[in-house]
């Protein structure tokens, strides 16, 4: 992932890991937006958001945290 250093990589991943919990609290409390769709439409939609999003988001977030944290 071309992070700055091994140390920075570990710290970034952990910071992401910690911050994602409060970031998702509102979603957990309010619930995912519900649409009256058939099961397959619902699945496609949610997989796209949470499955694919879940793969991509941390790559971006960890990279950003890696850039932001001050030490190498």
């Amino acid at each position: 992932m071309q992070l700055k250093s091994p140390r920075s990589a570990i710290i970034s991943a952990l910071i992401y890991n910690a911050l994602i919990i409060p970031a998702l609290i509102p979603l957990a409390l309010k619930g995912v937006q519900f649409r009256p769709l058939t099961a397959n439409q619902l699945l496609r939609r949610n997989i796209l958001i949470f499955g694919l999003g879940g793969v991509i988001a941390p790559f971006i977030a960890i990279k950003i945290i890696d850039i932001l944290i001050p030490f190498a």
Partner: peptide, 14 residues
């Protein structure tokens, strides 16, 4: 799903 999918990226980071 989100939590488990996150593992892939964390793996590649660590």
């Amino acid at each position: 799903t989100f939590s488990i999918a996150n593992d892939i990226a964390k793996y590649f980071a660590i």
